[in-house]
Simulated assay, not measured.
Amino acid sequence: MIGNYVPGSSLLHRVGAGGKILATLALMTVLGIYPRWWLVTAAVALLVVAYPLARLPLRALVRTLRVVLIFAVVLAAVQVWWQGPARAVEIVGQLVVAVLAGNLVMMTTKVSDMVRTISVVAVPLQRWGVRRDQVELVLSLTIGCIPRVARAMTTAREAARARGVKPRLRVIVPSVVVALVREADQIGEAIVARGL
């Protein structure tokens, strides 16, 4: 769902991580407090236009929408049945806005910048023994695990196809788990070696 950072020099790339995170939080807060179908639709349209303005590949937008599409269709059907089409647009639109905005921030912000910005919340907690460097480490590992899982899934699917096996979950999941456990073990050893 969440893409990797794509280097660039667009206006959105030059905006600081804090500004992008605050803008995303403000947008989601406004849509949560005032969820009107026309406002949600305008937010989706604005985010769709933001991808080419940030000079991101069109396939990044298509991939993001494809990931959320199945869940959005099911959610929309249920909401149309329960509360009507306008409410369905509002709820599904909020989901799409959250995914598009989050992905846009991730693709235009270096993980290190994002981690440094978010870890500022640890500064007041230092008097109780919370170390900012440890918070940054946890955040970077957490953010980094999303693309790692996606990469492991892709590798497992391709390996299954290469062996002539249909890539079903019962075939893919064990390979993914083994790959992720091996990587987690390597990360753990690196952390211990640095004394963190």
Rank of each mutant, 00 (worst) to 15 (best):
M1C: 10
M1Y: 15
G3W: 05
P7G: 06
P7F: 14
S9P: 04
S10E: 04
L11D: 12
R14M: 10
V15T: 08
G16C: 07
G16P: 03
A17P: 03
G18Q: 06
L22W: 00
L25A: 14
A26E: 06
M28G: 01
M28N: 13
M28T: 02
T29S: 10
V30E: 04
G32Q: 04
G32L: 07
I33A: 11
R36E: 12
L39C: 05
V40R: 03
V40K: 02
T41W: 12
A42V: 01
A43R: 06
V49D: 01
V49A: 15
Y51D: 09
L53P: 03
A54D: 07
R55K: 13
P57M: 05
A60I: 11
T64Y: 08
T64W: 09
T64S: 14
V67L: 11
V67T: 13
V68P: 09
L69V: 05
A72S: 12
A76I: 04
A76R: 11
A76T: 12
A77S: 15
A77E: 13
V78S: 06
Q79A: 12
Q79G: 02
Q83H: 09
Q83I: 04
G84F: 15
P85F: 09
A86S: 13
V89Y: 09
E90Q: 12
I91K: 10
I91C: 00
I91Q: 11
Q94K: 09
V96M: 07
V97L: 04
V97A: 05
A98N: 12
L100E: 03
L100P: 02
G102R: 00
G102N: 06
L104M: 02
L104T: 02
V105E: 03
M106H: 13
T109D: 02
K110Q: 13
S112A: 14
S112E: 15
R116K: 09
I118D: 03
V121E: 00
Q126V: 07
R127S: 06
R127T: 00
V130Q: 05
V130K: 01
D133G: 03
D133R: 07
Q134H: 11
Q134R: 15
V135Q: 04
E136C: 03
V138D: 07
S140M: 10
T142R: 08
I143T: 08
G144R: 08
R148Y: 05
A152N: 08
A152W: 14
T154F: 06
R157L: 02
R157C: 10
A159H: 06
P167C: 04
P167T: 00
V171T: 13
V173M: 14
V176E: 05
V176R: 08
V176G: 03
V177L: 12
R182I: 05
Q186W: 07
G188A: 15
G188D: 03
G188Y: 02
E189C: 05
I191D: 06
V192S: 13
R194P: 00
